[in-house]
Amino acid sequence: MTTMRQAFVETVNDEIAADPRIAVVTAVISSNEFPQENERVVDVGIREQTMVGVASGLALAGLRPVVHSYAPFLVERPYEQIKLDIGHQDVGAVFVSIGASYDDPAWGRTHQSPGDVALFDTLPGWTVHVPGHPDEVTPLLQQALKDDNRVYMRLSLHENTQAYPVGEGFTTVRHGKRGVVLAVGPMLDRVLKAVDSENADVTVLYAATVRPFDATGLRKAVQNTDHADVMVVEPYLEGTSSHLVSETLQQIPHRIRSTGVKRHAELRNYGTAEDHDAAHDLDVVGLGSAVRSFFRG
């Protein structure tokens, strides 16, 4: 079965052969997946700040750089380079991470990045994709490579059982009257199971793209329910999109429940991703409990 990472590599390798604008910049991680003989494939060694700086220079010279590494090393370590070398220079690039919040927690906190999307959210002009299935990766990436904008794509080992159409705002997966649940990327399957387990009569929206935020889609979904109650389920730091839900519904009295990786403590446990999901109430049991308490009555 193809993983999101494999879909990413295959798509980039197809596109780099076809489009002379595309370049790849890596810092060792995954570098052997790309054609080393191609002069547009640049590995800088374990030097993430320079990885982003080089990508900036390539963009300034007219290329379309794809920058790739494990999430904490792609986003957190060179954050100022992303802010200044890409954003402030007003150039475009496609950043693609693997590892997500805690895809492999046996590696410990150093390899976890629940704050990546929140960090990008501090910067203007970024498109953020959080695909929930490998088949969503290729169309999102192909479009990103054609454009000149700034794109962050967050890949994960965790995925839904089926792909949904991407690129047209939020997808309505289920209609209901009690409120709306917005499920981001790989959270959808668990959200559907939790909603089923609670017999909750809610609309479920699916988002593989969270920035720009589909305010129109959310507003319409809320207008078609009896209660302006919105639960957001994100696979990264809880509350990351709450400000946009609030802004979207500013003319409507509403309630928000934000669910995601908890902010209150740094978990030092290793274990599995499933263990961490349970600790953050992001498993079906935890989500079911949240659905029950939030949509009660």
Binding site: A23, V25, E39, R40, V42, Q49, T50, V52, G53, V54, A55, S56, G57, L58, A59, L60, A61, G62, L63, P65, E80, Q81, L84, D85, H88, Q89
Partner: peptide, 23 residues
Amino acid sequence: ISSGSLGHGLPIAVGTAIGQRIA
């Protein structure tokens, strides 16, 4: 380039020069 925060120009220059070479 826009500059001010130190330590950014040289890495960007490496990329710019590689970009010129590719072109």
